[in-house]
Computed example of a mutant assay.
Amino acid sequence: MRAKLVVGNWKMNGNLAQSRELLNAIITGTTELPDIVCAVCAPYPYLPAVQLILKDTHVVWGAQNVSQFDLGAYTGEVAAEMLLDFACRYVIVGHSERRSLFGEDNHTVAEKFKKAQGAGLIPILCVGETLAQREIGETERIIEEQLDAVIKLMSIDSLAQSVIAYEPVWAIGTGRTATPVQAQSVHAFIRNKIAQQNAGVAASVQILYGGSVKSSNASDLFAMSDIDGGLIGGASLIANEFISICSAAQH
């Protein structure tokens, strides 16, 4: 039985005081949810504060990105080893915003996955299609290419120590949301693709839904057999919303 995982992606939002207030509310509000893992991925500058506040609590944390390079002359980059200094468990790689706004291609994402996993972090590998790709029936091909880049560089077995997040790009920040049936269909495709190479990995890997999850739709989404939780964007910045989403995963 796969445990449910709910990850808050704060993106480039908040300040130190807001972060502290939000974290304390999440700690209190999710105390009675023993069957799920609750995590937050904060901006780099706030990781020391996140570690201090969440240490010895049930909430875990991570970062939103990582460099594909080893330590060295890469101004402005953050290495996987640096994230370990702040006890990060997770790191997001290949988020749709990194792909679309910063030009990260499948190979770059796969390299970041490799560095993260090699350092002992759990990569949250984001995959997903744009509206244009969906409308011409390219959803499965696009996602297959995104997964294959990692599988070819690493191996199918590497996915066992990762999390996959399906992001329908057309449903992020647009107010549009895939129906639970639409989301489940893509999640099932991902799991079935993995099962073709390793049924054990397919059965165990957590696949999250990352398309504008809110308290109002979380229960229906999380009830789907191949949806193992959510990668939460805007709603993760609102304590009551995020706590309600975590509660939906519990129930």
Rank of each mutant, 00 (worst) to 15 (best):
A132I: 11
A73I: 00
A132D: 10
G120E: 05
V109S: 03
R99N: 05
P123I: 05
K55A: 15
G94M: 07
S67K: 02
L84C: 09
A73R: 00
K55C: 09
R89A: 09
K112N: 12
E111A: 15
E111R: 14
T75I: 00
L83S: 10
F69S: 03
A80T: 06
T57D: 06
S67F: 04
R89F: 07
H107M: 10
L71R: 07
A119L: 03
A116M: 02
V127F: 09
D56T: 14
T130G: 08
L101F: 15
P123L: 11
T108H: 09
D85K: 09
W61P: 00
G118V: 06
V91Q: 08
L54E: 04
A63H: 02
V127L: 13
R98M: 07
V60Q: 11
D70V: 07
A80E: 01
G120T: 10
G94S: 06
I92Y: 01
E77L: 04
R99A: 10
V78A: 02
G118R: 08
A119Y: 03
L121E: 02
S67C: 08
K115A: 10
G118A: 08
V59A: 01
F113S: 06
I53T: 13
C88A: 07
G120I: 09
Q64F: 07
K114W: 11
D56S: 11
V59I: 15
G128C: 04
V66I: 14
A73P: 03
F113C: 05
E81I: 05
V66K: 01
A110G: 08
V91F: 03
S96R: 08
A110T: 04
D105I: 07
M82K: 01
L125W: 08
S67V: 02
D105L: 09
S100K: 13
R89C: 06
D70C: 07
K115N: 06
A87E: 13
A132Y: 04
G128L: 04
G72P: 03
H95G: 08
L121I: 10
E129L: 14
E97V: 07
L131C: 07
R99M: 12
D105T: 04
A132S: 11
R89N: 09
V66P: 05
E97W: 11
L84T: 12
L83D: 05
I92W: 01
H107A: 13
E104A: 08
V60R: 14
Q117R: 15
I53W: 04
L84K: 15
